[in-house]
Design a protein around this nucleic acid. Structure first.
Lengths: 190, 190
DNA sequence: ATGATTGCGTCAATGAAGCTGACCCAACCA
DNA sequence: TGGTTGGGTCAGCTTCATTGACGCAATCAT
């Protein structure tokens, strides 16, 4: 993998002088993020277009798939959009039976959102499409690169996004609190 | 930095089994790309909003800054949008004196686009803002991670984007043929 | 030289996804 | 009881993309 230097920035470019990021290095990063993100979303976008939905709907499906039971307010703060923007996306999703609402037990003002079976099926379809893209990229790049990718992407985020990410990642099965990295055979949950 | 394993996927997660990308790994990738890209663009977006421009304008400024003399058609194929979408962005940029046009010498149907001094200044301002974000991320992550980041991002792209990226990156000083930026002294033509 | 194609510009209409400010209701809390 | 919070909604606006059609000038091929 030390040969894997066709990233065009050149092998040593990254190792040079990180305190002053050279112009070409930044321009490359801009290009990579633009093209990469665009093509990353292209697959799901195409599927969504067929059924009259868009990327914003996908995001809702994604985060609800990740954390069923999110309240409206929590979802708003993750997406960092306005209530009205979310509404325009959420209303059709509920009307078409992809998302269900339930009144909070502890606080009956809250609405907990979750995917219906249809919602789960759609989310999975989008998920599988994206899995192809990401799996290919990960496989081409190798484990070390993947680790680096994660590290850099995380670094691009502001503090709020990092916190949101951490909250999302922990407690999928709220057993350990805080990040079970692998838990492959920890007796706990499959 | 070798300890830098707080990427939350866990240190060894990436090294496990890349042929079958586990669900959690992909969900993490989705999160990272969503939050990372959003915050990556947030800085320039804020500057642009002040002067009544948007992200689409930034993209044009960026690619013209990278490759002055691009023709309209080349820019279209890089951005992968329609002529009309580009027009809505390009017309104001020219009207406000950020971008200049010049008729192609070799082929007079073509319009070569480039930044005016004002355009360069604006592009640089946006650039510097983004430099802060990326420099911070790169510095936190370290050179190896950066190399990995580039590798993965490139892997996310489809073939067309890769080709566009390669064309962009080479020949900053056009010693190598490939896109005569201006065709400055081709004696031809009246 | 004629005719087709190419490069660019522009018309009109549409849609997705965000924004603002205002206002309402039900529920919670002090 | 009265203020705050969580959620929903109305009206109107902006950005960025889409489509299809058409025009014009320049180039290329026959």
């Amino acid at each position: 993998m030390p040969d894997g230097t066709d990233t065009r920035g050149g092998a040593g470019a990254a190792g040079r002088n990180l305190l002053f990021l050279r112009e070409e290095e930044l321009r490359l990063a801009q290009d990579l993020l633009f093209f990469g993100y665009r093509d990353f979303t292209a697959g799901p976008d195409a599927i969504l277009a067929e059924i009259g939905l868009g990327r914003a709907h996908h995001r809702v499906l994604h985060f609800l798939g990740r954390r069923p039971g999110l309240t409206v307010g929590e979802l708003l703060s993750i997406l960092a959009i306005t209530k009205q923007s979310l509404s325009r996306v959420l209303t059709p999703l509920m009307a078409q039976g992809y998302v269900a609402q339930s009144t909070g037990r502890a606080d009956r003002r809250q609405r907990h959102l979750s995917l219906t079976p249809e919602g789960e099926a759609l989310e999975r379809r989008l998920f599988e499409r994206q899995r192809e893209t990401v799996t290919r990229a990960y496989r081409e790049a190798g484990p070390v690169a993947v680790e680096g990718f994660r590290h850099v992407m995380r670094g691009l985020m502001g503090p709020e996004a990092r916190r949101a990410l951490d909250r999302l990642g922990m407690a999928d099965r709220p057993s350990v609190r805080a990040v079970p990295p692998q838990a492959p055979l920890q007796g706990k949950t499959p």
